[in-house]
C-alpha cells in the first residue's frame, strides 16, 4: 500500500505546483492563504482562486478521465497500444466543435463542451459499430483502420469549414491544441457530472476487465457476458474521453501511457490498475501543464503539446520492447 500513497503524494505536489507556478510565481504560503483566508483585495489570491484552482481541477479531472479511459480501452481491446484516439474521439469532437463555432456561433468554452462531447460520442459509436462487424468482433486492427478512416473523413469536412471561414479557424486552432488554460469554474461544473459518473463506472469494471484479459472463452466460462461487458466498457470510455476532450481539447498519449505505468506499479489485477490509473493520469497531466507554463515564459506551451512530445518517446520505447503486441 506504500505505492498508492507515494502516488497520492506526487499528486498533491503536482497540484500545489500547479497552483503556485505560472507566468507569475506565487509563494506556497500565499497559495495556502488564498485557499484558507481569501482576501479579494490581493491580486495573488485572485489569481489562485479564479485562474489556477479551476485550471488545476480541470487538469485533475481530465487526467483521471483519460487515464481510466486508456486503461479501459486497452483492457477491452487487449491491445497495449490502444488509445481513446483510435475510436475517432478527437476527430469527432473537433468536427463538432468546428461546426458549433461556424454554424451555431458558439464562442465560449462552455458552449464547446457540449459539441465536443456529442462529437466524441458519435464518432466512437460509429467506429465501434463498423469495427466490430463481422467475424472476431472488434479486433485491434479493424478498429484502428476504421478509426483512421473516419478521422480522415471528419478532418476533411473540418478543413472544408475552416478554409471557408477564417474566423472559425482563428478560434478553433486554440481549441485544437489541447490545453487546460482558461478553464473557468463554470465549464468544470458542466463536465463534472459526466466525469464523475464515468469515473465511478470505470472503477467498478475492474473485475470485468480481469475476466476479459484472459480471453473471451475463459471470460465466458467464468459466466461473464462478454458483449455486455464490452458495451459497458465502451460506454465508460465514451463518457470519460468525450467529456475530457470537450473540457480540454484533444490530449494525446495520456490514455496510452498511463495504463502501462499503472500496470508496472500495480501488477496484473485491473481492480488495482484502475484506481492507480485514476491517480497517475492527473499527476502526468498536471505536471505537463506546469512544465508547459515554465518552458516558454512568458508564454505557454499547451499541455496537449507537452504530453505528445513526451509521450511519443514513451510509445517508441514500448514498441521496441519485446512481445508487446498482445495483451
Amino acid at each position: 500500500m506504500r505505492k498508492p500513497l507515494g502516488i497520492g503524494a506526487c499528486l498533491a505536489v503536482a497540484a500545489v505546483l500547479s497552483l503556485a507556478v505560472g507566468t507569475k510565481d506565487i509563494p506556497v504560503t500565499t497559495v495556502f492563504d488564498a485557499l484558507t483566508a481569501f482576501d479579494p483585495g490581493q491580486v495573488d489570491h485572485l489569481i489562485v482562486t479564479e485562474r489556477r484552482v479551476p485550471r488545476t481541477l480541470a487538469g485533475l479531472l481530465v487526467g483521471a478521465a483519460l487515464g481510466l479511459a486508456g486503461t479501459l480501452i486497452q483492457g477491452v481491446t487487449r491491445n497495449p497500444l490502444a488509445d481513446p484516439g483510435i475510436f475517432g474521439v478527437n476527430a469527432g469532437a473537433a468536427l463538432f466543435v468546428v461546426v458549433g463555432i461556424a454554424v451555431f456561433g458558439v464562442t465560449s468554452l462552455t458552449g464547446y463542451v457540449w459539441f465536443g462531447f456529442a462529437g466524441a460520442a458519435t464518432a466512437s459509436a460509429v467506429v465501434y459499430v463498423i469495427g466490430s462487424l463481422g467475424r472476431g468482433g472488434a479486433s485491434p486492427l479493424k478498429l484502428a483502420l476504421t478509426g483512421a478512416a473516419l478521422t480522415a473523413a471528419l478532418s476533411s469536412l473540418q478543413s472544408a469549414v475552416l478554409l471557408t471561414d477564417p474566423a472559425t479557424h482563428d478560434r478553433f486552432r486554440f481549441w485544437q491544441v489541447g490545453t487546460l488554460a482558461g478553464r473557468d469554474p463554470e465549464i468544470v461544473e458542466q463536465a463534472l457530472p459526466f466525469l464523475a459518473a464515468g469515473i465511478v463506472g470505470a472503477l467498478l469494471l475492474g473485475k470485468v476487465l480481469n475476466g476479459l484479459s484472459l480471453g473471451d472463452d475463459v471470460a465466458r466460462s467464468f459466466g461473464q457476458n462478454t458483449t455486455t461487458d464490452r458495451v459497458c466498457c465502451g460506454l465508460a470510455v465514451v463518457v470519460l474521453a468525450g467529456a475530457a476532450t470537450a473540457l480540454a481539447g484533444p490530449i494525446t498519449f495520456l490514455g496510452l501511457a498511463v495504463p502501462h505505468l499503472a500496470r508496472m506499479v500495480a501488477g496484473p489485477d485491473y481492480r488495482r490498475i484502475l484506481p492507480l490509473s485514476m491517480l497517475i493520469g492527473p499527476v502526468l497531466l498536471v505536471l505537463a501543464d506546469v512544465l508547459g507554463r515554465v518552458v516558454a515564459r512568458p508564454g505557454e506551451v499547451q499541455a496537449g503539446v507537452v504530453t505528445a512530445l513526451l509521450g511519443a518517446p514513451v510509445l517508441v520505447v514500448l514498441v521496441r520492447r519485446r512481445k508487446l503486441a498482445r495483451l
Binding site: G85, V177, T252, A312
Partner: peptide
Amino acid sequence: AALLSAVSFLM
C-alpha cells in the same frame, strides 16, 4: 501524433 501536435502548437 507527436508531429501533428507540434503542428497544432505552431498554428
